[in-house]
Protein backbone atom coordinates (compact mmCIF):
# COMPACT_ATOMS: atom_id res chain seq x y z
CA UNK A 1 0.00 0.00 0.00
CA UNK A 2 1.23 3.51 -0.82
CA UNK A 3 1.67 6.11 1.90
CA UNK A 4 -1.63 7.89 2.45
CA UNK A 5 -1.64 11.59 1.58
CA UNK A 6 -3.63 12.37 4.70
CA UNK A 7 -3.06 10.41 7.86
CA UNK A 8 -4.90 11.30 11.03
CA UNK A 9 -3.83 9.52 14.20
CA UNK A 10 -5.43 9.55 17.63
CA UNK A 11 -7.25 12.82 16.99
CA UNK A 12 -8.96 14.04 20.15
CA UNK A 13 -10.82 17.29 20.64
CA UNK A 14 -12.21 18.46 23.98
CA UNK A 15 -14.55 21.39 24.43
CA UNK A 16 -14.44 21.99 28.18
CA UNK A 17 -15.66 18.70 29.60
CA UNK A 18 -17.11 17.41 26.35
CA UNK A 19 -15.01 15.11 24.24
CA UNK A 20 -16.20 15.79 20.70
CA UNK A 21 -13.59 13.58 19.06
CA UNK A 22 -12.07 10.57 20.74
CA UNK A 23 -8.91 8.89 19.45
CA UNK A 24 -9.93 9.05 15.82
CA UNK A 25 -7.76 7.45 13.15
CA UNK A 26 -8.35 8.01 9.46
CA UNK A 27 -6.36 7.95 6.25
CA UNK A 28 -6.90 8.90 2.63
CA UNK A 29 -4.73 7.61 -0.20
CA UNK A 30 -3.97 9.47 -3.41
CA UNK A 31 -6.82 9.37 -5.90
CA UNK A 32 -9.30 7.91 -3.46
CA UNK A 33 -12.78 9.09 -2.53
CA UNK A 34 -13.23 8.46 1.17
CA UNK A 35 -16.47 9.17 3.00
CA UNK A 36 -16.92 9.97 6.66
CA UNK A 37 -20.43 9.24 7.86
CA UNK A 38 -22.24 9.16 11.16
CA UNK A 39 -25.45 10.30 12.82
CA UNK A 40 -26.04 13.98 13.54
CA UNK A 41 -23.74 15.30 16.23
CA UNK A 42 -21.23 12.49 15.79
CA UNK A 43 -18.41 15.04 15.38
CA UNK A 44 -17.87 14.96 11.64
CA UNK A 45 -17.71 18.71 11.13
CA UNK A 46 -15.55 19.08 14.26
CA UNK A 47 -13.21 16.63 12.59
CA UNK A 48 -13.02 18.83 9.49
CA UNK A 49 -12.45 21.91 11.64
CA UNK A 50 -9.56 20.18 13.43
CA UNK A 51 -7.98 19.06 10.18
CA UNK A 52 -8.26 22.45 8.45
CA UNK A 53 -6.84 24.46 11.33
CA UNK A 54 -10.00 26.20 12.58
CA UNK A 55 -9.63 24.27 15.85
CA UNK A 56 -6.37 23.05 17.31
CA UNK A 57 -6.92 19.44 18.37
CA UNK A 58 -6.31 18.57 22.01
CA UNK A 59 -4.36 15.44 21.13
CA UNK A 60 -3.33 13.48 18.07
CA UNK A 61 -1.76 14.48 14.82
CA UNK A 62 -2.70 15.27 11.24
CA UNK A 63 -0.02 14.44 8.68
CA UNK A 64 -0.16 15.50 5.06
CA UNK A 65 2.23 13.77 2.66
CA UNK A 66 2.38 15.20 -0.84
CA UNK A 67 2.58 12.40 -3.44
CA UNK A 68 6.16 11.56 -4.32
CA UNK A 69 7.48 13.06 -1.13
CA UNK A 70 8.64 10.75 1.61
CA UNK A 71 8.31 13.25 4.44
CA UNK A 72 4.94 14.21 5.82
CA UNK A 73 4.03 17.63 7.18
CA UNK A 74 2.19 17.88 10.47
CA UNK A 75 -0.73 20.26 10.09
CA UNK A 76 -1.54 20.32 13.80
CA UNK A 77 -1.73 23.86 15.15
CA UNK A 78 -1.22 25.50 11.77
CA UNK A 79 -3.37 28.47 10.81
CA UNK A 80 -6.12 27.80 8.26
CA UNK A 81 -4.44 29.81 5.50
CA UNK A 82 -1.22 27.80 5.89
CA UNK A 83 -3.17 24.54 5.87
CA UNK A 84 -4.78 25.62 2.60
CA UNK A 85 -1.40 26.54 1.21
CA UNK A 86 -0.08 23.09 2.14
CA UNK A 87 -2.87 21.50 0.13
CA UNK A 88 -6.20 21.05 1.91
CA UNK A 89 -9.29 22.83 0.64
CA UNK A 90 -12.80 22.52 1.97
CA UNK A 91 -16.41 23.42 1.39
CA UNK A 92 -18.99 24.08 4.07
CA UNK A 93 -22.20 22.43 5.19
CA UNK A 94 -23.87 25.84 5.28
CA UNK A 95 -22.57 27.57 2.17
CA UNK A 96 -19.96 30.27 2.84
CA UNK A 97 -19.38 32.06 -0.41
CA UNK A 98 -18.32 35.69 -0.64
CA UNK A 99 -21.87 36.63 -1.51
CA UNK A 100 -21.20 40.24 -2.51
CA UNK A 101 -18.55 39.23 -5.02
CA UNK A 102 -19.14 37.82 -8.47
CA UNK A 103 -19.01 34.14 -9.28
CA UNK A 104 -15.76 34.61 -11.15
CA UNK A 105 -14.20 36.62 -8.31
CA UNK A 106 -15.10 33.90 -5.85
CA UNK A 107 -13.07 31.41 -7.84
CA UNK A 108 -10.24 33.91 -8.42
CA UNK A 109 -9.96 34.40 -4.66
CA UNK A 110 -9.12 30.71 -4.46
CA UNK A 111 -5.97 31.40 -6.48
CA UNK A 112 -4.76 33.88 -3.88
CA UNK A 113 -2.44 31.53 -2.02
CA UNK A 114 -0.83 30.30 -5.25
CA UNK A 115 0.00 33.78 -6.52
CA UNK A 116 1.94 36.64 -5.01
CA UNK A 117 1.42 40.17 -6.39
CA UNK A 118 1.09 42.66 -3.51
CA UNK A 119 0.54 46.41 -3.09
CA UNK A 120 3.40 47.61 -5.26
CA UNK A 121 2.62 45.10 -7.98
CA UNK A 122 -1.02 46.17 -7.89
CA UNK A 123 -0.13 49.84 -8.36
CA UNK A 124 2.86 49.57 -10.68
CA UNK A 125 1.33 46.77 -12.82
CA UNK A 126 4.56 45.12 -13.82
CA UNK A 127 4.69 42.53 -16.56
CA UNK A 128 4.82 39.71 -14.03
CA UNK A 129 1.70 41.00 -12.28
CA UNK A 130 -0.25 41.24 -15.50
CA UNK A 131 0.79 37.76 -16.57
CA UNK A 132 -0.16 36.41 -13.17
CA UNK A 133 -3.57 38.08 -13.36
CA UNK A 134 -4.15 36.61 -16.81
CA UNK A 135 -3.28 33.14 -15.56
CA UNK A 136 -5.64 33.52 -12.60
CA UNK A 137 -8.41 34.56 -14.96
CA UNK A 138 -7.86 31.70 -17.40
CA UNK A 139 -7.71 29.04 -14.74
CA UNK A 140 -10.79 30.42 -12.98
CA UNK A 141 -12.80 30.37 -16.19
CA UNK A 142 -11.65 26.81 -16.78
CA UNK A 143 -12.92 25.78 -13.37
CA UNK A 144 -16.24 27.52 -13.89
CA UNK A 145 -16.66 25.58 -17.12
CA UNK A 146 -15.88 22.37 -15.32
CA UNK A 147 -18.64 22.94 -12.75
CA UNK A 148 -21.00 24.35 -15.39
CA UNK A 149 -21.16 27.94 -14.18
CA UNK A 150 -19.24 29.75 -16.94
CA UNK A 151 -22.45 31.46 -18.11
CA UNK A 152 -22.94 33.04 -14.69
CA UNK A 153 -19.38 34.34 -14.27
CA UNK A 154 -20.44 37.95 -13.69
CA UNK A 155 -23.47 37.31 -11.48
CA UNK A 156 -23.21 38.00 -7.79
CA UNK A 157 -22.69 34.75 -5.93
CA UNK A 158 -25.76 35.40 -3.77
CA UNK A 159 -28.01 35.34 -6.85
CA UNK A 160 -27.14 31.77 -7.82
CA UNK A 161 -29.48 28.88 -7.13
CA UNK A 162 -28.68 26.71 -4.16
CA UNK A 163 -27.24 23.86 -6.18
CA UNK A 164 -25.14 26.26 -8.24
CA UNK A 165 -23.76 27.88 -5.06
CA UNK A 166 -22.61 24.45 -3.90
CA UNK A 167 -20.85 23.84 -7.19
CA UNK A 168 -19.25 27.27 -6.96
CA UNK A 169 -17.91 26.41 -3.52
CA UNK A 170 -16.33 23.29 -5.01
CA UNK A 171 -14.81 25.34 -7.85
CA UNK A 172 -13.39 27.84 -5.37
CA UNK A 173 -11.85 25.03 -3.33
CA UNK A 174 -10.37 23.46 -6.48
CA UNK A 175 -8.81 26.79 -7.43
CA UNK A 176 -6.37 26.40 -4.54
CA UNK A 177 -5.06 23.22 -6.26
CA UNK A 178 -5.60 21.04 -3.22
CA UNK A 179 -3.90 17.70 -2.67
CA UNK A 180 -7.06 16.70 -0.88
CA UNK A 181 -10.52 18.18 -1.26
CA UNK A 182 -12.76 18.10 1.82
CA UNK A 183 -16.48 18.29 1.10
CA UNK A 184 -18.77 18.91 4.07
CA UNK A 185 -22.23 17.58 3.19
CA UNK A 186 -22.19 18.72 -0.44
CA UNK A 187 -25.67 17.31 -1.09
CA UNK A 188 -27.37 18.85 1.96
CA UNK A 189 -30.62 20.51 0.98
CA UNK A 190 -30.42 19.50 -2.67
CA UNK A 191 -33.25 18.03 -4.69
CA UNK A 192 -32.74 14.60 -6.31
CA UNK A 193 -31.88 16.11 -9.68
CA UNK A 194 -29.23 18.38 -8.17
CA UNK A 195 -27.84 15.48 -6.15
CA UNK A 196 -27.51 13.46 -9.32
CA UNK A 197 -25.59 16.28 -11.02
CA UNK A 198 -23.37 16.61 -7.97
CA UNK A 199 -22.68 12.88 -8.09
CA UNK A 200 -21.50 13.27 -11.69
CA UNK A 201 -19.40 16.32 -10.85
CA UNK A 202 -17.61 14.63 -7.96
CA UNK A 203 -16.95 11.55 -10.12
CA UNK A 204 -15.58 13.78 -12.88
CA UNK A 205 -13.25 15.59 -10.46
CA UNK A 206 -12.13 12.29 -8.94
CA UNK A 207 -11.46 10.77 -12.36
CA UNK A 208 -8.87 13.51 -12.88
CA UNK A 209 -6.96 12.12 -9.92
CA UNK A 210 -8.28 14.46 -7.22
CA UNK A 211 -8.38 12.83 -3.79
CA UNK A 212 -11.57 13.60 -1.90
CA UNK A 213 -12.72 13.26 1.70
CA UNK A 214 -16.45 13.62 2.01
CA UNK A 215 -18.95 14.05 4.82
CA UNK A 216 -22.41 13.11 3.66
CA UNK A 217 -25.80 12.01 4.87
CA UNK A 218 -27.22 10.92 1.54
CA UNK A 219 -26.43 7.19 1.74
CA UNK A 220 -27.16 6.56 -1.91
CA UNK A 221 -24.59 9.19 -2.85
CA UNK A 222 -22.05 7.86 -0.36
CA UNK A 223 -22.40 4.26 -1.50
CA UNK A 224 -22.13 5.14 -5.17
CA UNK A 225 -19.12 7.45 -4.80
CA UNK A 226 -16.87 6.14 -2.09
CA UNK A 227 -13.94 3.81 -2.34
CA UNK A 228 -13.83 3.47 1.43
CA UNK A 229 -16.08 4.62 4.25
CA UNK A 230 -15.36 5.56 7.85
CA UNK A 231 -18.25 5.58 10.29
CA UNK A 232 -18.23 7.53 13.53
CA UNK A 233 -20.61 7.97 16.41
CA UNK A 234 -20.19 10.00 19.61
CA UNK A 235 -16.75 11.13 18.46
CA UNK A 236 -15.42 7.61 18.02
CA UNK A 237 -14.76 5.54 14.95
CA UNK A 238 -17.08 2.54 14.97
CA UNK A 239 -16.36 1.02 11.58
CA UNK A 240 -14.34 1.34 8.41
CA UNK A 241 -14.30 -0.50 5.11
CA UNK A 242 -15.58 -0.64 1.56
CA UNK A 243 -19.26 0.25 1.00
CA UNK A 244 -20.45 -3.36 0.96
CA UNK A 245 -18.87 -4.07 4.34
CA UNK A 246 -20.35 -0.96 5.88
CA UNK A 247 -23.81 -1.78 4.64
CA UNK A 248 -23.65 -5.14 6.39
CA UNK A 249 -22.01 -3.94 9.60
CA UNK A 250 -24.39 -4.46 12.55
CA UNK A 251 -22.78 -1.65 14.59
CA UNK A 252 -23.40 0.85 11.85
CA UNK A 253 -27.01 -0.21 11.54
CA UNK A 254 -27.34 0.11 15.29
CA UNK A 255 -25.89 3.61 15.32
CA UNK A 256 -28.24 4.78 12.60
CA UNK A 257 -31.42 2.90 13.41
CA UNK A 258 -31.11 2.09 17.11
CA UNK A 259 -30.89 -1.32 18.71
CA UNK A 260 -33.34 -4.10 18.08
CA UNK A 261 -35.32 -4.92 21.14
CA UNK A 262 -35.86 -8.56 21.87
CA UNK A 263 -39.50 -9.29 22.28
Amino acid sequence: MTTPILKVTGLTMDFGGIRALNQLDLDVCAGEIVALIGPNGAGKTTFFNCVTGIYTPTKGDVILTPPGSSKGISLKGMKPNIVTQKGLARTFQNIRLFSKMTVLENVMIGRHCRTKAFILGAILRTKATRREEREILEMSYGLLEKVGLADFANEFAENLSYGAQRRLEIARALATEPLLLLLDEPAAGMNPQETLELDDLIKKIASEGQSILLIEHDMKLVMSLSDRIFVMDYGKKIAQGVPAEIRANPQVIKAYLGEEVDA
Partner: peptide
Protein backbone atom coordinates in the same frame (compact mmCIF):
# COMPACT_ATOMS: atom_id res chain seq x y z
CA UNK B 1 -16.94 39.79 4.16
CA UNK B 2 -15.87 36.65 6.01
CA UNK B 3 -12.52 36.53 7.73
CA UNK B 4 -12.55 32.83 8.61
CA UNK B 5 -13.53 31.79 5.12
CA UNK B 6 -10.85 34.08 3.69
CA UNK B 7 -8.28 32.19 5.75
CA UNK B 8 -9.70 28.89 4.50
CA UNK B 9 -9.18 29.83 0.87
CA UNK B 10 -5.57 30.51 1.77
CA UNK B 11 -5.52 34.27 2.36
CA UNK B 12 -3.04 35.44 4.95
Amino acid sequence: QDRTMAMLVGIN
